[in-house]
Write a protein that binds this DNA or RNA. Structure first.
Lengths: 187, 187
DNA sequence: CTTGAAGCTGAATGTTAATTCATATTGAGC
DNA sequence: GCTCAATATGAATTAACATTCAGCTTCAAG
């Protein structure tokens, strides 16, 4: 899909700048940032956005995909550690903070997408993320560290729930409360 | 503020219809519903919206205020029950579900407001709500039912966090996880 | 039943933002 | 360094909205 013909050097550079700028702008100003603003932030003209992405929706979808990809990689790495013998709950909690940031941005972007009406394709990364997460949660439950009725869906519910806007320390506090609700108390 | 001169009967009726329609439309379709849509839902012409509210922001602010008012009343009633001897944690949890609904809508509407750039005045209702909530939380903590480090801010953090969109059962599940995180386990 | 103020209507105005496209640039194979 | 297909540019087009206002309608006081 990316390789019909290799991209010209400057085009590839611009594409990257556009994705980066779009991410930053959308996370910072929400759904309604003008394409002009994204273009300006990327240092290109609007027309260039449309050379790379047919519509604003498509651009937003691409940004989402990059977030999902990041999270998938992160979580698969965590799963590897669990399978290598680390305690699942420990790994999960350690990851949480880092993934949280991306999840937060991702949520903003998803909201942006649906506000615009994009029915974007969940795609490969999402499945990878789900599968890996499910295994980690299962392991932690089996260890007796997480309440036995807990599932990946709960985890996702909570991650999708998380507040986008507010301060880092509030976010940390929130995470603590959440995770405490997940634990058996035995840990 | 409401009583410069009593409103003509039909005007009062329209104002109520407008507020109701605005609430429904904003909660259902989000910030960006056109004034035209609100007008149509209320069965009046756009001009009428502007007779009652100078700008869209003002209309949105009025809707927020009505939600806050509802919650303030609800929570003050809860406080009365606590002061009458009911166990604070019980009352709090019983209320939670009901207040949750309004909080969810309110969040949507607030988001709408800030998306439009309304710096609306938190106002009286908000303070009443805060004060009453703080007392209930304090009582529950003193009873030993809620973890001792818990404050109203935590409660609000959680209520502001709550997902607007999703299904009633998911919301219930979420609430359970949250509240479990709040408890001492003693209860 | 009159009448004037209070209300209502909806087309017109002004603004903002997505998307297009004719024109101008530029990378890379030769 | 030449050439042209790939790219980039940004003014123009089009669509949605918020908001205004001149003219019409309806309460309600007398």
């Amino acid at each position: 899909m990316t390789q019909d013909r290799p991209l010209r050097a400057d085009a590839a550079r611009n594409r990257a700048k556009i994705l980066e700028a779009a991410d930053a702008q959308i996370v910072a100003h929400g759904p309604e940032v003008p394409m002009e603003a994204i273009a300006a932030a990327a240092g290109v003209a609007v027309g260039t956005l449309y050379r790379h992405f047919p519509t604003k929706q498509a651009l937003v979808a691409a940004v989402i995909e990059s977030h999902l990809e990041y999270m998938a990689v992160e979580i698969e790495a965590a799963l590897a550690r669990v399978e290598a013998g680390e305690r699942a709950a420990d790994v999960l909690f350690e990851i949480a903070g880092r993934v949280l940031e991306s999840a937060a941005s991702d949520k903003t972007v998803k909201a942006a997408a649906s506000a615009i009406g994009a029915e974007y394709d969940p795609g490969d990364s999402f499945d990878r993320m789900t599968v890996a997460s499910a295994r980690i949660v299962k392991a932690a439950v089996d260890d007796g560290d997480l309440r036995p009725d807990l599932t990946v869906d709960d985890l996702f519910l909570v991650f999708n729930t998380l507040p986008t806007e507010l301060p880092a320390d509030a976010r940390r506090r929130w995470l603590t409360l959440m995770l405490d609700g997940f634990c058996t108390g035995r840990r």
